[in-house]
Design a protein around this nucleic acid. Structure first.
Length: 352
DNA sequence: TGAAATGATTCGTA
DNA sequence: TACGAATCATTTCA
């Protein structure tokens, strides 16, 4: 505004501009009340219409003159207002959108995986958890953990470098557009609000590119996880002692081989595995036992004898202490689950 | 090296 | 939601 008024001092013609009038609001108001503004605007519009017929130099001179005209700010402000009330107000409604839930999901996942945000041991922790779930010892999978961490770090690095590139490109493009619009605002009715709006549009466009980057990063992490952390691929057989503890419980509760939550926890603790692994084990055992009782008979006999011996020992100790014996309740009761009386029962009965 | 064993997953059901 | 059944993927063993 100040530059323009200064430039106006050298201007002649164009609506009868006088030096004394420059920057004098009272004088402007006086002229407005006399109906001069309409004439001014008419003149300006006329000159704008005629500008294309003139040579480049002349046009530049005209443009400069128009830019420096004392009525220009007022005219532009009116045009901006009209523009704001019509096109931009319609567009403005469409522009206000809530945060995209998909972006939020992607952000959360990347954060949880340690790809975005501060670097953390998330990946290795996840790997350790998976290894623990698979029953593997920490040393067994430490090499794979470091491999997993290395791959995750690689993904992280690529993600950040790409993100940086996008942000740089976004900022460069935004600056370019802002400068362009500011430049054009000298000759076109472009308000600062409109420039802001344009910047927001650019940011939205770039954020959609960012979303694609986040999406592909998430996919890469998922593939990495499935490759390294899929428990089925990293399956380890339970150790002998754990299998023995589980079998002991199973055959001593053959009538109802459904351990309670507490029993599962106890077994998990004893075997050094998770409760869900105990559940899996019993699920598999029940179905496989049921499918082929004959095949498991020997095993059943073995554990029945073992259980019976234990029970006998307990009984003996109890009678020594002059108290009633309390044999294992599950040993000989094969109701519901076992379809017929087996050797297991007979064996255990014999031992007793 | 192929079959058997085994732990995990998925899907339908009560 | 726990369970049965089917299936997958891996390990173990002859």
């Amino acid at each position: 505004m100040d530059d323009q008024t200064r430039m106006m001092t050298g201007l002649t013609g164009l609506g009868g501009l006088q030096q004394a009038d420059v920057g004098d609001p009272d004088s402007v108001r006086k002229q407005q009340s006399l109906g001069q503004p309409q004439q001014d605007i008419g003149d300006i519009l006329q000159q704008i219409m005629a500008i294309t017929d003139e040579s480049l130099d002349e046009a530049q001179a005209r443009k400069h003159a128009l830019n420096c005209h004392r009525m220009k700010p007022a005219l532009f402000s009116v045009l901006c207002e009209i523009k704001e009330k019509t096109v931009l107000s319609i567009r403005g409604v469409q522009e206000e959108d809530p945060p995209d839930p998909q972006i939020m999901r992607l952000d959360n996942m990347l954060l949880a995986e340690g790809v975005s945000g501060p670097e953390k041991g998330g990946g290795s922790a996840a790997a350790a958890a998976a290894a623990a779930a698979a029953g593997g010892s920490p040393t067994d999978s430490s090499i794979e953990h470091s491999d997993y961490r290395a791959k995750l770090a690689q993904i992280r690095q690529i993600y950040h470098s790409e993100l940086e590139k996008y942000e740089q490109a976004c900022s460069e493009f935004t600056n370019h557009v802002m400068n362009l619009l500011r430049e054009q605002s000298r000759t076109r009715p472009i308000s600062p609000k409109e420039i802001e709006r344009m910047v927001a549009i650019i940011h939205r466009k770039f954020s959609s590119i960012q979303m694609q980057l986040k999406q592909s990063t998430c996919e890469a992490v998922m593939i990495l996880r499935s490759r390294f952390l899929d428990a089925r691929r990293k399956r380890r057989n339970f150790n002998k002692q754990a299998t023995e503890v589980l079998n002991e419980y199973f055959y001593s509760h053959l009538s109802n081989p459904y351990p309670s939550e507490e029993a599962k926890e106890e077994l998990a603790k004893k075997c050094g595995i998770t409760v869900s692994q105990v559940s899996n084990w019993f699920g598999n055992k029940r179905i496989r036992y049921k499918k082929n009782i004959g095949k498991f008979q020997e095993e059943a006999n073995l554990y029945a004898v073992k259980t019976a011996v234990d029970a006998a020992n307990v009984s003996a100790q109890a009678s020594q202490a002059n108290s009633p014996a309390t044999p294992n309740s599950g040993t000989t009761e094969h109701l519901g689950f076992q379809p017929e009386c087996s050797d297991v029962e007979r064996d255990s009965d014999v031992v007793k």
